[in-house]
Amino acid sequence: MTPQLYNSLLIGAVLFVLGTLGFLTRRNLIVMFLSAELMLQAVALNLIAFGRAHGNYHGQSFTIFVLTVAACEAAIALVLFLALYQRFNSLDVSVWHELGESDVEDVEPELLAEKEFFQVEEFPTYPTLSPAGREPALSKSSAGTKKGGAKRG
């Protein structure tokens, strides 16, 4: 195994795992979808590296197919997100859990989060009108410091 192939595979693995992580944790449908694309890219990297190692163009051909499928997926997924957003006015994936067992506890992610490693504290509310589409200062301070959230909350 050449170092180049090895390194490519390594990067592919890292990229794949990062995509996995995003897909599992993020609740915004669009970001989840981007994470899935990340995993596809990791696979494409592997394909190209293997194609080069074997000295043929199958890997690149397959990458083109991956691109094709990704494009189709993007089109369908985005229009579905739009439809879902029109229904519930939210891009939260956990809104859609009708197919689960109805009487299972802890379905609500808010409740799930309470039992997780991180303690949940009251989340600051945003002002409804943000001036000129700029991010309100509040959210940055809440991410950075602890006091900003407490004041507004």
């Binding site: 897909f23 599992l24 989840m32 859990h97 197919l99 689960g100 067992e101 299972v104 802890d106 992610p109």
Partner: peptide
Amino acid sequence: FRKWQSGLIQSYAAMMF
């Protein structure tokens, strides 16, 4: 087992991974 059948896509995906 039904605890995992929460209907949330990500819990199913976690099982897959």
